[in-house]
Design a protein around this nucleic acid. Sequence first.
DNA 1: CCAATTTTCGAGCGATCGCTCGAAAAATAG
DNA 2: CTATTTTTCGAGCGATCGCTCGAAAATTGG
Lengths: 224, 224
Amino acid sequence: MLDPDRFTSEALCASILERHRDTIVVKKPAFAVRKLTVIVDTALELSNQKGFQAMSLRDLSAASGVSMGGLYAYFDSKTTLLKMILTEVTEQVRSVLGQAPEDVRADPARHLDWLIETHIHLTEAMLPWFAFAFMEAKNFPAAERRMATDSEELTETIFADAIADGIAQDRFSADTSPLLAALIKPLLQDWYVKRSKYRRRGVDIDTYVRTVQDLAHRACLAAA
Amino acid sequence: MLDPDRFTSEALCASILERHRDTIVVKKPAFAVRKLTVIVDTALELSNQKGFQAMSLRDLSAASGVSMGGLYAYFDSKTTLLKMILTEVTEQVRSVLGQAPEDVRADPARHLDWLIETHIHLTEAMLPWFAFAFMEAKNFPAAERRMATDSEELTETIFADAIADGIAQDRFSADTSPLLAALIKPLLQDWYVKRSKYRRRGVDIDTYVRTVQDLAHRACLAAA
DNA sequence: CCAATTTTCGAGCGATCGCTCGAAAAATAG
DNA sequence: CTATTTTTCGAGCGATCGCTCGAAAATTGG
C-alpha cells in the first residue's frame, strides 16, 4: 500500500535537512541526518507527552543527549524546529494524496475509497508526526498557522473534487451534502488523535478504514 | 431548545464560585461573581487566541483590569483556573445530555436526533468554553485528565446506548457499525473546533445539525 | 603525524514566568 | 464620624525560559 521505507524517521529527517540546508550549520550529511533524527524523534516524543510549549530545550537536550549548543546547529529558534516538523507533515500529505493511480482516479467511488484508505495509512505510518501537528497547530505563530490551515483546506479540496466528480458522473446522488468533504476530515483525524482509545478497544486499521468508507458511501446515496 | 440564561458567563461563573467556595478568598458573592466573570471571560478570550500556556498572568491581569494579587483571590494557581473552566464544561455536558424528555428517549431515532441537536446547540451556547476545553485538555494534570477522558467516554456511552436501544427495537440495522458512537463525537466537535471555517462559508447551525443527523441515520440503515 | 576544519559542549546572559505579601483603598458596622 | 473588616494593589522573589559564545573535542586532509 505505502512503502514503509519512505516514512522512517531517517527518511523524513533527510527531507527536512534538504529543505533547511541553509539554516543548518552542520556540513556533513552523514553527521547531520543521524543527529537530526535523534533530535526530531525525541522532540516528537516529549511534545506528544506534555506539549511543545511545555517541552523546554533543556528537556530536549537531556533526553536526546545533544547539548544545548548542539541543538542550535540544527535550528536557529524553537519555532524553526516546530516549522520543520509541520512542513514535513503537510508536504507528505500533499505528495501522497496527489498520487492516486490513473485507473483509481477514473472511478469516483474507488477514488474516494483510495483517499480514505491512503490518508489513514499515511497517518498510521507517521503517527507521532500527525499527533504533533494536530496538537500544536493551534499554538502556532500567525504565519505557521496559515500554512497549517491552507494544508487542511487542500486536503478537503481533494476530497470535495472526488465527490463532485462522482456527482457529475451520476454515480453519487445529486443532493449529496456539500458538507460531506468537510466532515470526512475529522473522521480521518480521529484515528490518530484518539489512537490509544482504538488500540485499547482492539479496533484494527482495516476495520476503521472500511467503517469510514462505508459512512462516506452511504452519504453519497440518494435520500431515503 | 436550550434556555440561554443558563449559559451566560455570569450563570456559569456563579456555578464555578459555588464549586470552589473554599479556595476563593473573596467573601461577598456580589463582588466575587462579577469579578470572576471578568477574569474567566478574559482568560477564555486570551487563551483561545494564543493558548493557555502562552497566556501569562500578567497578560490576564492587564486585559481584565484585575491586578496580579487580585487574581490570586480567585485561584491559588494557574492550574486551578484551568481546572475551574474545564470542570464547568464537563459538568454542563453531563447535566444537559442526561435530560432528554421521556417521550424522546422512548423513540431511538428521535433520541439520537435529540442528542446530536442538543450537543451542537450546547457547544454553540458555550462556544469559547468548548473551544478552550478542546485546546487545553492535554494540559490537565494526570488526575484531572482521567476525569476528562471519563467524561468523553460517558458522552460516547450515551450515544452508544441510544444506538443499541434502536437495534434492540429493530429500528436500526443489526449490523450497524459498533464504531458509530465513537465516530459521531468528532463530527460534533468539528462544529466548534472549526467554527470560523463554517462561519466563513455561511453554514448555519440547523444545516449542520441536519447533516450530522442524516449521516447518523444512514449509518443505522441496513447495508446496501 | 601535525595542522586545519568541523562538530560538540555547557555555563552564563537577559527576559519573563508563576506567585507572594505588606500596604493602600474601599466597603461595612457601630 | 471612627473602627474594623474586606478587597485591591503591584513591586519584588526565585526559578526557569530561549538562546549565545568561546573553548574543548573530534574529524579530516596532506
